[in-house]
Design a protein around this nucleic acid. Structure first.
Lengths: 255, 255
DNA sequence: ACATTTGTTCGATCAGGTCGAATATCTCTG
DNA sequence: CAGAGATATTCGACCTGATCGAACAAATGT
């Protein structure tokens, strides 16, 4: 069979299950036949997995279409709430948005990518809900760079090997050595900037959140370049970020 | 073996996988041995499932402890965003909170339970994040009752059979016939009240959200009894709820 | 350093996941 | 509304691979 010979000690049936889940998301719901055709497995196999998914609430059925169920939302909220920095990070983001009027974020990392954990839209009330939960490369994200700067060099190398350094704009850092220089500077100055490295015309600043010396996530403030000048970032905004992290440190110290 | 003889055409290996996931949540993370002991299966079996979960990002490993991963959050946000009423419901909740100053909710239902989909804390800024994503019985929730009232009698019966009518306070409706009378009244008046039926001293009012004649969820406003009197609910608050649903109807009609 | 606990790997076995075909159910079209 | 075509579900048989127990490795505590 054309499958990878060694998925090294996992359980293939589970892989199939997750293939179904993944495809169900990519297709925004689908029927048994379509899933089976695309995965090139028997309809009855797909049906078996869907039956279990259904019973467990991870999938729902509308007519003949299967869709991912809100059990994912339930578990997702639980996982977010379990993050050590979530409760205090949430208050910090609320405060940052109030003080700066700009879009503010709490992010963390997992599996070598940055994940938007909590955000506020700023004065313009940008809808953050479409961004929440998404995973992005760390090298073009201010918070992501702040996190990367606090990982070991081996970890950074592993992440770059795994995910690469794709360009988003012409300012994106796509060279491994340039990235390492940048991370060195971030460590020295204690904050990371994003000058249109992700989206043209969007600038941001991020600071790391560490607990007991271990990097747990980052706070960031982002906005259009005309309001989020480098000077404002490194001045007023950075002051607020520093205040926010100080408060988180205190909250967690007395946890 | 003591397992149910007929799990009727699902895949048992998947059941085990979800048992692991569920237990990992109940224990807030655990090691291989503990999981294997509690589930009464071999350590190597648990290890196999965890390996796949790990590769897929649904589980992370801190030292020797396994924890549920943020992939659940990623998928959860996706599923919420897919709900037809989410975008417009979100704006409605924001508006309700602004207008009433009280805690406001968008809920929906799946598998016979109500699920908090989006909420705002009101003037007192109650932390809604611990509630988001949780599933509750529908019969002691104003939004839940509003939804129940728009399901067929067979569906209501099925739900009551499956989940029962447990009491939360002495005001909870625990009798099937009394519930059906209440649902009848809710259909007539177009809104559902919750007078300390869930939590002592908390009152709420909910209205159904239907799309193309099908019930999709509910909006509700909740607060302490001294502010959320029956009169205020059925007067000022109901007016705001009606305005909110009207706007949702318009938004969705022109989708 | 040793004992104990926990995590991971390995080989053998037989439950059960997978497949393909048959049947049931739904949908469209004339 | 009948019948054709598509889709979902069920069934039986095969043989992969999920499971187990034991052996090994790594980590933790004393």
């Amino acid at each position: 069979m054309a499958r990878e010979p060694d998925r090294s000690r996992g359980i293939q049936s589970d892989e199939t299950l997750f293939d179904v889940i993944e495809l169900l998301r990519d297709l925004d719901g689908a029927g048994v036949t379509e899933l089976a055709d695309r995965l090139e497995i028997a309809k009855s196999t797909v049906h078996g997995h869907l039956t279990t998914l259904l019973r467990r609430g991870f999938v729902v059925k509308h007519g003949r279409e299967y869709h991912l169920g809100l059990r994912f939302f339930e578990y997702g909220q639980y996982v977010r709430g379990q993050l050590e920095i979530f409760q205090s990070g949430l208050r910090a983001v609320d405060r940052l948005e109030r003080e700066t009027g700009e879009m503010s974020w709490l992010i963390t990392h997992q599996n070598g990518k940055a994940i938007y954990v909590y955000g506020r839209g700023g004065k313009n009330d940008i809808n953050v809900n479409t961004i929440l939960g998404t995973r992005v490369h760390m090298h073009y994200n201010s918070g992501g760079k702040a996190i990367l700067a606090h990982l070991s060099e081996e970890e950074v190398d592993r992440i770059v090997d795994q995910h690469g350094l794709p360009a988003r704009t012409e300012n994106t850092i796509t060279d491994r050595e340039r990235l390492k220089d940048e991370l060195e500077r971030i460590r020295e100055q204690g904050y990371a900037l994003n000058l249109s490295e992700d989206l043209e015309g969007i600038q941001a600043i991020g600071v790391p959140l560490t607990v007991d010396g271990e990097i747990q996530g980052a706070l960031s403030v982002a906005g259009p370049a005309h309001r989020m000048s480098k000077d404002r970032c490194e001045g007023e905004i950075l002051d607020h970020l520093r205040a926010a992290t100080d408060e988180i440190d205190v909250t967690i110290a007395y946890r």
